[in-house]
Design a protein around this nucleic acid. Structure first.
Length: 520
RNA sequence: CGCGGGGUGGAGCAGUCUGGUAGCUCGUCGGGCUCAUAACCCGAAGGUCGCUAGUUCGAAUCUAGCCCCCGCUACCA
């Protein structure tokens, strides 16, 4: 069933700015990317999943000075922190890009030249309110009563010559494009937000900084006294990573590009980036997928222990798969959510331990207890068996639609409805009674159950790869993980050998509300 | 007239785009089962879906107006 490999899929996270170490928000975005990438691999798509780090700009220089390092050493260190975090969260990115990479810098300069030669970059005065202490310009809205929020002094009005990107030229085109491509920015609330912004005239974008003020950046190809402003640098990573313009990957993947971002960087991605692409003569990306924020009540945590929510700590404490599941199940993609360990524990116990883990546990135990793990070929299915199978096949179809639309919580709700039906099926069929009265029927019931569990294992693999594969090994399947495609559950009745020879440990041990592992 | 988000049983949330018996988790109460991780299954109590008007045979869902809460001031996905 790998015949779909000519179908391509390209997904990106933002490149993370290296002035802080990875936190919950970074982890969420990247796990979403991983889930969607794994889903497409499972569906037979040739998939390219990109993440990386954004390393230029003033704040990075300041952060390096603050830690007493050279800029180069500093960016290497923080970039590595990101790069080394992702494997620990089971992130399967195909490439990790850094904006300090030579090929990226070359691509940025190439694009700049192209747009410059086209006449869409011009040199002009920039006048603004500049705080000498901060060494930066402020907009009126950033100022507190007309004063710098940090130094509390009045900013100086100064003029600076800079290069500008003729973004206003593309406003009409962008409005039409978004109109004609309803899913271009999604969910819809963010599309509306961009459209609302585009109702006002778009200003041209200042894309340079003089070197005397900022040297840590990519020099403009047409004026070496200037470096490019961060967004023009950063956004281009999405194509430089593919080897634009001539790279095979660019040809294969760019036309199916999808970005994932959090709502704070909607404007650069929803407006600057499409205009930049248009100016450079490159097709727009396919979808911009925008998610909300995790609101973390850090006050509570710091009171007791003075600790912060760090993704790796949570994964260590509760299990990586539980952590990944929680993030994708709890947040409605696009909306804000509250994060708390309490709600994580609630989901871990209710959804994972009670509903799902226990279903696997009781089913496996019976397969081993009554048939020594070797289930007989199923007999003639009865109505209840067919109903359950029908429900499973229906869930697979709905799941695909939800996943493609980034409705992860709905995809998981569907899977858990199936889990609920399987638990109910056990209670209705009473296999422990069949063990004494009708062994053939017992075999059919247990086979039906293991098929449902197999189906579930495939559907949860993008979210919880370790758990899914553990189950698939227990079921004695020859193909596991990404080798077991989404269509496999349709081949019902093939699971004969269950390998849970002795009692397997629970997939998800229950946790008491204080976060300690409960006594099993 | 700033912009945006939200107001759904005790708590936390889906559902609103594509109107049609109001759903989930936790909690409470009662029952069942014994294969299972004090788990699972069934049942019960509990909601004027912020307010008002409108469209409609029918509105949590669409339209208009109003009220209340929260971000936009902390690094940042």
């Amino acid at each position: 069933m790998r015949g779909n490999s000519h179908i391509a899929f390209y997904i990106t996270t933002p490149i993370y700015y290296v002035n802080a170490e990875p936190h919950l928000g970074h982890a969420y975005t990247t796990i979403v990317g991983d889930v969607i990438a794994r889903f497409h691999r499972l569906s037979g798509y040739e998939t390219f999943f990109l993440t990386g780090t954004d390393e230029h700009g003033n704040k990075v220089v300041e952060a390096a000075e603050g830690s007493g390092e050279t800029v180069e050493a500093y960016v290497d260190r923080i970039s590595s922190a990101f790069k080394e975090t992702w494997p620990k969260l089971n992130i399967t990115n195909d490439y990790f890009i850094r904006t300090t990479d030579g090929n990226h810098k070359a691509t940025v300069r190439e694009i700049l030249s192209k747009v410059y030669e086209k006449g869409d970059i011009y040199f002009s005065d920039y006048e603004g309110k500049y705080c000498v202490g901060c060494e930066r310009f402020y907009t009126d809205t950033e100022l507190t009563q007309g004063r710098c929020p940090i130094h509390m002094n009045e900013p100086r009005i100064i003029k600076e010559e800079n290069y500008f990107f003729r973004m206003s030229k593309y406003q009409g085109w962008l409005i039409d494009y978004i109109d004609e491509h309803p899913g271009f920015i999604r969910p819809e609330r963010y599309r509306n937000e961009v459209m609302a912004f585009l109702k006002e005239p778009l200003e041209d974008l200042c894309i340079s900084r003089p070197k005397r003020r900022l040297s840590w950046g990519i020099p403009l190809p047409f004026n070496d006294d200037y470096v490019t402003y961060v967004w023009f640098d950063a956004l281009i990573n999405y194509i430089s990573a593919l080897g634009y313009p001539g790279g095979e990957r660019f040809k294969k993947f760019w036309r199916v590009a999808q970005h994932i971002i959090a709502k704070d960087i909607l404007k650069p991605h929803g407006i600057y980036w499409p205009c930049m692409l248009k100016a450079a003569g490159i097709e727009p990306y396919q979808h911009l997928n925008v998610h909300g924020y995790w609101n973390v009540n850090t006050g509570k945590m710091s009171k007791s222990l003075g600790n912060i929510v760090r993704p790796l700590d949570l994964a260590d404490k509760y299990g990586l798969d539980a952590f990944r599941y929680f993030l994708l199940r709890e947040m409605v993609f696009g909306l804000d959510s509250d994060f708390s360990e309490e709600s994580l524990v609630r989901r871990l116990n209710a959804d994972l331990a009670n509903d799902f883990g226990n279903l696997v546990s009781r089913s496996m135990t019976m397969a081993v207890k009554y048939f020594e793990g070797l289930l007989p070929a199923p007999g003639k299915p009865e109505e209840a068996d067919e109903d359950l199978r029908g429900a499973a096949l229906k869930v697979i179809e709905e799941y695909k639609g939800m996943m493609k639309g980034f409705a992860f919580h709905k995809a998981l709700i569907g899977v858990w409805e199936l889990i609920g039906k399987a638990n109910k099926y056990i209670d209705t069929m009473k296999p422990w009674a069949l063990a004494r009265s009708d062994r053939e029927r017992l075999g059919t019931v247990l086979t039906t159950l293991t098929e449902v569990i197999k189906t579930v294992s495939v559907l949860i693999w993008p979210f919880m790869p370790q758990t899914a594969e553990k189950i698939q090994h227990q079921l004695g399947l020859e193909r596991v993980g990404s080798e077991l495609p989404l269509e496999a559950p349709g081949e019902w009745g093939r699971t004969k050998q269950v390998r849970a020879i002795s009692k397997a440990p629970p997939l998800f041990p229950r946790v008491n509300p204080e976060g300690e592992k409960a006594r099993g």
